[in-house]
């Protein structure tokens, strides 16, 4: 599939019932698509709705109107209207997400955290762990940390665990929410190289990168989110 992700006419607002039902518009009429092997970077100032777009695509936020079409296996799924079971199935096989923060589970080792998406897809445990070890090594996470739960790791170490977890599968689409925010220069370069490799494999990526150097290196195209901002419409 040449264009595995198509977003059309998506509207999103929050209704704050606890604040007298104030309606906060987030984005209006969002239209874009991401092709295989392409990395599109969402641009624009803070608070313009970049993260909200990623969360809608991943199913964490509901949308008011519009369609989010994802090529899943040999059919097309509309995330905006899919039932929870379908969304989970799409997440397991097609749609990956690397968030800024790691949600840690007590007692699960870093290696297992990374290997888990492969376990969920039914990959043999030993094979999954080998792949996880390979990624953690590539991201320079000290070997003595692999068997420890990541809750006590530094921000940068947690983020590398998170990246390894997000990149371990062969998902056709990857959403990247500032995956390099707390990394040093060496590891940022490793991530840039990993993104380039995903592109060569034909993965469609949509990301937020505040670091200019990384953005320059990975972006094929920058999508200015302020064009979808309802605030712009009000000001105009």
């Amino acid at each position: 599939m040449a264009t595995p992700l198509v977003v059309s006419e998506v509207f999103k607002s929050f209704t704050m019932h606890l604040r007298d039902g104030i309606k906060l518009p987030v984005v209006n009429d969002v239209n874009f698509s991401v092709a295989s092997g392409e990395c599109v970077v969402l641009g624009g100032p803070s608070g313009i709705g970049k993260s909200s777009i990623l969360k809608m695509l991943y199913g964490n936020y509901a949308v008011d109107a519009g369609q989010i079409l994802v090529g899943h296996k040999d059919k097309i799924v509309d995330i905006a209207h899919a039932d929870p079971r379908t969304i989970l199935e799409v997440r397991r096989h097609t749609l990956g997400y690397v968030s800024q923060f790691l949600r840690t589970v007590p007692r699960v080792s870093a290696l297992d955290v990374v290997a888990e998406p492969l376990f969920a897809r039914g990959v043999d445990a030993a094979q999954a762990k080998d792949k996880a070890a390979e990624l953690l090594a590539k991201l320079n996470l000290p070997r003595e940390l692999w068997s420890l739960p990541p809750a006590t790791f530094s921000g940068g170490e947690q983020q590398r665990v998170n990246i390894a977890r997000g990149f371990i599968t062969s998902h056709r689409i990857l959403l990247l929410d500032e995956p390099t925010a707390s990394l040093d220069a060496v590891n940022r370069r490793v991530v840039v190289e990993m993104i380039a490799e995903k592109k060569r494999e034909g993965v469609a990526m949509l990301g937020i990168f505040h670091d200019e150097e990384v953005r320059e290196a990975v972006a094929d195209r920058i999508l200015d989110v302020s064009q979808f901002s309802p605030r712009k419409a009000i000001a105009a």
């Binding site: 929050f14 209704t15 704050m16 019932h17 606890l18 969360k55 991943y58 199913g59 964490n60 936020y61 509901a62 929870p84 969304i87 989970l88």
Partner: peptide, 15 residues
């Protein structure tokens, strides 16, 4: 979806 209900609750009581 659990993530959706917790991240983007719609009903006044859920919020």
């Amino acid at each position: 979806l659990t993530d959706r209900v917790l991240d983007d609750p719609r009903e006044p009581y859920t919020q």
